[in-house]
Design a protein around this nucleic acid. Structure first.
Lengths: 201, 201, 201, 201
DNA sequence: GATGAATGAGTGTTCATTCAT
DNA sequence: GATGAATGAACACTCATTCAT
């Protein structure tokens, strides 16, 4: 990993735990193993590290968002397991590549902390945790409905319920304390219980 | 308001926006209108301000929790409007005296920020936002069920759905950006839409 | 002397020798014998020290300028030595209380250094070394002329010659290297030689 | 222009405005358009830039000083306009090739700033602005006197007056703020007024 | 109850310089 | 000739805290 990448990695870990302001350049550098002056060769100032992280996250989620379409397109054509709405729903959350992904998870924590005094981050936070997921679910369920797998009239409330349940679980298990295997498993279990009840019954 | 109270008030406002570490004694004192040395007459050190806030919050919610029982006891005996399960549910959330209450709302924000590196606060955060509300709902709905207002077998999932919906709304509207009248209204609307659908239909 | 005054004193000595930018807060504090943080109790930042010096100088020269009038008023009424135009001219320069005065002399040096990149200081520098002295001489010589001690028609050129000579001497002896007794004496001698030739012959 | 020359040029411009210490290698390099490490290919260290500038200036004024003799030799043999003492005096100051010359003017400013804490520069400053010009005038006027254009007995005071007037004008117009066309013109006018009065009347 | 004055440790950042490429 | 990457020392300034008054 390049020095620049190492700095961003260490900075994100620290920022997401203690907040941007509470982490000092000295903290980052001593963890990375460089002198403070070296950091300023790679970043113009402390804010630039944060901005670079946000920028990287933006690019990253744009990538993910373009992938989610591939997953959820043409549900009717899919055979077997994938046709199962509950499986599609779970897949659409990209749990492993998004919520469990260390970079994304830490960015969510960082945004959770910083959103209260940084409007740019607040908007990204709202979009990432509320707006985008809701929209994605809406698309999927509409497709499932038009494919006849689901009754058309319930679409809105199904989306709302699913979205609220998944959101609550994210805050409860994935954005609360360290992201341990235990918490991941508890999250997974609750997701599957919910999906089983909601889409199979 | 006493100087001590003013300090706690100002500190909470600042801590909940920028985080404990990012706020300096200077910031607090210049806002309160006292010299830094004066603060140390009222508080042992910076940490003591935070601890006092947490302590005040603990006492405050214990108070609220004891009240909630009065609200939710003996639903069957109540007449008219209060017997409506949806009204009882909404009441039980103590929206005005808890989620909308400036002190409580700011404390929730502060805990949201600090929970990632302070286990004591994390536990209080989890209890306050996830464990306690779930339990309260469970009690209420069980009472409603045993009073025959609701079928016994659905109790668990009704609680889960309600709790997840209310939790999501709290994060989306009340712990996101400033607590404006606009956000409060949007929150209220969504709460009533949900209750209407869930308990009246 | 108060800590604040000591800081200003030391700062002026250093600024006037090495220039504002080249002097560090550390330099000043170690000479004064205080910690850097203490300096910031007395001054809001480094620039504030410079501004305070400039302000003090402004007040100081306004004081001096009001005194010069007393010296030069009503030359005709004065008897004996003071009626001698050359003595009046020399007096009017307030050599001991201005050019030789440590505070003023160091301020002139400081302004000489800083004028090239600080328009506020440049204006004060121009006023102090060129505009004001010229005007003062003009007033005195006009009074001497109207008192009949001097022919009216030569007034302008007498002022110009005197002013240019005195200015040159100031730069040559008083704003060049350390202000040693040797340089002061050389300056004095040249002043008196000039006055003797100009006003006695 | 070679990179080395560009560096010296930029450095002189910056040094003469803000002082040697206040200008950073970074400042110079970013203006020149090279990386800091590149500068060290051309100069041993920061001090070396200053030394090179001083050395270049020394060579330059030696050149000028040898030229001045050609201008002022054998005044009696010259015919027409050049025989006019006032014209010779003005010429001898080499206004365009020295005082108005960008390199020399900026070097004088730099020396004015640095002389207070650098004895080598102080000596050069004194020689350049006081000693040499006085000597040159003395030579010229002595020649004019021995050629019978001027009475022998006044020589010393004519030189002193001329030198002081020209010196004062230099500080007032050419070493004060930016060297604008306006200031150049004001300087020129005053020079000619003085010469007209001193040597033509 | 409150403050003026001080401090040691720490903040983010810039400095001139080096050296392998 | 020029650069990318690094560094130790210094920079101006802020931190939480103390203590005599």
């Amino acid at each position: 990993m390049s020095t620049r990448d190492k700095i961003m990695d260490v900075a994100l870990n620290m920022f997401s735990e203690r907040g941007y302001e509470a982490v000092s350049i000295r903290d980052i550098c001593s963890e990375v193993g460089i002198k403070e002056s070296t950091l300023y060769y790679h970043f113009k100032n402390k804010k630039d590290i944060l901005d670079s992280l946000v920028e990287k996250f933006r690019t990253h989620i744009e990538d993910l968002l373009s992938h989610v379409d591939e997953i959820t397109e043409n549900p009717a054509q899919k055979k077997g397991k994938n046709a199962d709405p509950s499986v599609q729903m779970v897949d659409s959350y990209m749990i492993d590549s998004y919520l469990f992904d260390p970079f994304c998870n830490l960015m969510l924590r960082l945004m959770m902390i910083e959103q209260f005094h940084n409007e740019e981050i607040r908007e990204l936070y709202e979009k990432t945790l509320f707006t985008d997921p809701y929209e994605i679910q809406m698309n999927i369920i509409k497709r499932l409905a038009s494919a006849g797998v689901m009754p058309e009239e319930d679409v809105e409330w199904i989306v709302r319920e699913t979205h609220s349940y998944m959101t609550m679980l994210t805050f409860k298990y994935l954005l609360n304390g360290d992201l341990t295997e235990k918490r991941k498993k508890a999250y997974y279990k609750e997701v599957h219980d919910f999906m089983a009840r909601r889409f199979k019954a």
